[in-house]
Amino acid sequence: MEFVLLGFSDTPNLQWILFGVFLLIYLTILVCNSLIILITQIDPALHTPMYYFLGNFSFLEICYVTVTFPRMLMDLWTQKGHILFLTCATQMYFFLMLGATECLLLAVMAYDCYVAICNPLHYALVMNHKVCSQLVAASWITAVPLAIGHTYQIFSLPFCASHTINHFFCDIPPILKLACGDTFVNEIVVYVVAVVFIMVPFLLIVVSYGKIISNILKLSSARGRSKAFSTCSSHLTVVVLFYGTATITYLQPKSDQSEGMGKLFSLFYAILTPTLNPIIYTLRNKDILMALRKLLAKVSA
């Protein structure tokens, strides 16, 4: 059995333009995140917990976009959207696993900011290399059973109606719309999992930033406050972008979400946010910019 991904077939005159735009975006994401990984590895000044997490986050972003982009580009190129049942399930599994890992890793990065600003004297002790590695590993491993269970639950449903998915990848809301019978229990499971893996990490991030902001306001020096806030402002911007669109997509009732709006929000968290993330981290971070200049100087020498 197979599904048909409609993708952007409702705009046939723009297929080749979209292919060029999305290919450029995909290559930009790959190059920018690869550069961040490279400089965090080779520059000794960036061998700190914050940049260790950033390097892992960049690797995660490369994996995250690779789940959807190549398939979407192929469908635009061939103007066919046929996808096998098993391939669709595999794509959903990796998308859910990597998305949940991103939620958890963003919470870990918020905790790192909290320790750096609110407990600086014990920062090196608390955020040692072993702890950092364990936090990253836990973020990846915890997401695996969630993705397996969720994917199995969705694809165990009977699909006896249309097999046409009005989307550009196999996401939960459009797949649920194709299922026969009552999907109320499945929707409840989606909400519960979304609350656990989206809202709980988000609440941890909110608590961390509440304490961070409270601590920053207590600083007497305006320069100190500016430096402290700039340390975490990039991360906070990424959190707002990612969580805003993901929350709207997965916590909104299926009946209230139009297919067009669902596709639009998916474009934000699956494409636009990963595109903006490396730009946000590089443009707002002096250490990253300095490391990039060093690297370019070595390459051009």
Rank of each mutant, 00 (worst) to 15 (best):
R223V: 05
P173G: 05
F57N: 05
K227A: 14
I42Q: 13
P174D: 02
M261D: 09
L267K: 11
L38P: 05
T142P: 02
D43V: 10
A179T: 03
C170Q: 00
T247E: 02
A124N: 03
F22S: 02
P12I: 04
P253C: 08
D75R: 00
H167Y: 14
L217T: 13
Y64A: 10
L5N: 02
I280C: 00
P120D: 06
Y51L: 11
E102F: 09
S162C: 04
P274N: 13
I141E: 09
Y26K: 11
L86W: 11
L6A: 08
T247R: 02
E102C: 11
Y93P: 02
F169K: 09
S214R: 14
L204K: 13
M92Q: 03
L289I: 07
N285P: 07
F69C: 09
C113H: 13
A147F: 03
A45C: 07
D256G: 13
E61K: 12
A228V: 05
I36L: 14
E259H: 02
P12S: 03
V131N: 09
L96A: 04
L98T: 03
M74E: 07
G81V: 01
L176T: 06
G262T: 00
F94A: 01
D171Q: 07
R293C: 12
T247H: 02
H163W: 04
T249Y: 05
G7F: 00
S234L: 03
K227E: 14
A89V: 07
Y52N: 06
L135Q: 11
S214K: 15
S156G: 06
T231K: 11
S9V: 00
I17Y: 09
S255Y: 12
P70K: 10
P145R: 12
P44W: 05
I39M: 10
T273S: 10
F94T: 01
A194L: 08
N277S: 11
M72D: 03
L283D: 01
N285K: 08
T40A: 13
V196W: 03
Y281C: 09
F184W: 05
I216V: 04
L178V: 06
W16K: 11
V299P: 03
L178S: 06
T78F: 01
K177G: 01
M72E: 07
S58K: 04
F184Y: 13
T48L: 05
L241I: 02
S220P: 01
V131F: 14
C160K: 15
K80A: 05
T183N: 15
P49N: 07
F94L: 12
L18Y: 14
T40P: 11
A147K: 00
A100H: 04
V31N: 07
A143V: 09
Q41V: 14
R223T: 05
C32L: 15
L219F: 12
I141Y: 06
A297E: 14
C103E: 04
